[in-house]
Computed example of a mutant assay.
Amino acid sequence: MERAYNFNAGPSALPLDVLQLAQKELVNFKETGMSVMELSHRSKEYDRVHEDAQQLLRELLEIPDNYDVLFMQGGASLQFAMIPMNFLGKEQTANYVLTGSWSEKAVKEAKFIGETKIGASTKESGYSTIPSIADITYSSDDAYLHITSNNTIYGTQWQTYPTGHSIPLIADMSSDILSRPIPVSEFGLIYAGAQKNLGPSGVTVVIIRKDLHERTPDHLPTMLRYDTQSKSNSLYNTPPTFAIYMLSQVLAWVKEKGGTTAIAKQNEAKAKLIYDAIDESSGFYRGHAEQGSRSLMNITFNLPSDELNKKFLQEAKEKGFVGLNGHRSIGGCRASTYNAVPVEACEALRQFMVEFKRIHS
Rank of each mutant, 00 (worst) to 15 (best):
R3P: 02
Y5M: 05
F7V: 01
N8G: 04
A9G: 04
S12K: 00
P15G: 04
Q20S: 10
K24L: 13
V27D: 09
T32R: 09
M37C: 13
E38A: 12
S40G: 04
S40P: 03
R42K: 12
S43M: 07
R48C: 06
R48Q: 10
E51Y: 09
E51H: 11
A53T: 10
A53F: 02
R58A: 07
E59G: 08
E62A: 15
N66V: 11
D68G: 02
L70E: 05
L70H: 14
G75N: 14
A76F: 05
S77D: 01
F80Y: 14
E91D: 12
E91P: 06
E91W: 14
N95W: 04
Y96C: 04
V97L: 07
T99S: 08
W102L: 06
E104T: 05
E104Y: 12
A106M: 11
V107R: 14
E109K: 11
I113Q: 15
T116Y: 12
A120K: 03
G126D: 13
S132C: 03
I136E: 02
Y138R: 01
S140H: 02
D141N: 01
D142H: 02
I153K: 09
W158R: 02
Y161I: 04
D176R: 03
D176Y: 12
I177S: 03
S179L: 03
I182R: 02
V184Y: 11
E186Q: 01
I190D: 06
Y191F: 14
Q195N: 08
K196Y: 13
N197H: 08
L198A: 11
G199V: 15
P200H: 15
T216R: 00
L220Q: 04
L220M: 02
M223I: 04
P239Y: 07
P239W: 06
F242Q: 13
A243N: 14
Y245G: 15
M246Q: 14
M246T: 13
G259L: 07
E268S: 12
A271R: 08
L273P: 02
A277G: 05
E280T: 10
S281A: 09
Y285D: 06
G287I: 01
H288R: 05
A289K: 01
E290I: 00
Q291R: 00
R294L: 04
N298H: 03
T300S: 07
T300P: 00
P304V: 11
E307L: 01
L308W: 11
N309C: 10
Q314H: 07
Q314K: 12
K317V: 13
K319I: 09
F321M: 10
G323P: 01
H327V: 05
R328F: 09
I330N: 05
I330F: 08
N339D: 00
A345F: 00
A345S: 01
E347W: 00
E347Y: 00
R350H: 01
R350V: 02
R358H: 13
R358W: 14
